[in-house]
């Protein structure tokens, strides 16, 4: 029990919270045909986080958030510049910028010497859920002990903060998000600016990327922004139900994925470990595959 509280519970919570916050905003990326933006976001915030850490010397939440947002904003401006001022084809502009930003982040990691001490390229790519531990946990009573709870891994607080902000804004602006995603021209005629709501969607995706990146890595972030919403898309025609179902699949991926990562090798008696972030993402992908094969709303084949 104690080892579950010390090792498994915090890791499972980190993975699941990251899955929830990414899936929540992912619904609107999928509906507005910007799924690859989730991927781009995961890549562009890396140099921001590294530079912020080098300048401030701490991984405090606000430092990470500021650095990542600055990087996301800078990248967005760079993409807009390449598209509008220079006339580069949109997806090429996005691709050129996000690869260059990630390359810059990787180089900064190596050159500044923070690699392997605070961040690691592998952790950024693969996720390092396993490092979220709660050494102060001494038993079930620790769950009600404020002093012990205070030593929970810091990523948890960051993720909870991100989840609350994203959820609150989506609940408050649900109908505005719906009308802009469905019919931007109409939204403009009733005084709801598609540009503003679009910027909000991108900002929330950036926030989700920031709180998740150092905790779970790029790949879990992308998988969670796309797979649970895509799974839910196969099951319902109602937006609210879709969002709720995507959260359910994110939760299931987090819990089952982590459990499989820990238990599957044990069950076969192997002394190997499966990366939890990767396993969670694979489980989310398998849910999507099942929904695409058997879901009631998978859609009619398009004859190309």
């Amino acid at each position: 029990m104690t080892s579950f509280l010390q090792i498994d519970l915090p890791a499972m919570l980190v993975g699941t919270l990251a899955a929830l916050v990414c899936a929540l905003i992912g619904n609107f990326l999928v509906l507005t045909r910007q799924s690859m933006l989730g991927d781009a976001m995961g890549h562009v915030v890396l140099p921001g986080i590294v530079i912020a850490f080098v300048l401030a010397g701490t991984t405090a939440t606000w430092v990470m958030l500021t650095g990542a947002f600055a990087a996301a904003l800078f990248s967005a401006m760079l993409v807009e510049f390449l598209r509008r001022m220079a006339g580069v084809e949109p997806s090429a502009a996005l691709g050129a910028v996000f690869t260059a930003m990630f390359a810059l982040g990787v180089l900064l990691l190596e050159q500044s010497g923070v690699a392997r001490t605070t961040f690691d390229v592998h952790h950024i790519l693969f996720g390092n859920i396993e490092t979220a531990i709660w050494p102060a946990a001494a038993g079930i009573r620790s769950l009600f002990d404020l002093a012990a709870l205070a030593s929970l891994p810091p990523q948890l607080g960051r993720l909870a903060f991100g989840l609350v902000v994203v959820a609150l804004i989506i609940v408050l602006l649900f109908k505005e998000l719906r009308v802009v995603s469905f019919d931007p021209d109409f939204a403009r005629t009733i005084g709801i600016s598609p540009r503003m709501i679009g910027a909000l969607i991108v900002s929330l995706a950036a926030l989700a990327a920031v709180v998740s990146l150092s905790a779970v890595g790029v790949i879990l972030l992308v998988a969670m922004m796309v797979c649970p919403p895509a799974t839910a898309r196969m099951l319902t025609d109602d937006l609210r139900t879709q969002v709720l179902l995507s959260l359910l699949f994110a939760l299931a991926s987090g819990v089952f994925g982590y459990a499989i990562a820990v238990l599957l090798p044990l069950a076969f008696g192997y002394e190997i470990s499966l990366g939890a972030a990767g396993t969670i993402a694979v489980v989310a992908g398998l849910f999507q595959l099942a929904a695409m094969l058997f879901g009631p709303k998978r859609g009619i084949p398009r004859t190309a």
């Binding site: 790519l125 790949i219 992308v222 499966l274 972030a277 990767g278 396993t279 993402a281 989310a284 999507q288």
Partner: peptide, 9 residues
């Protein structure tokens, strides 16, 4: 995402 994650695992 799914293929890359499988590779990571």
């Amino acid at each position: 995402a799914t293929f890359f994650a499988l590779g990571i695992v």
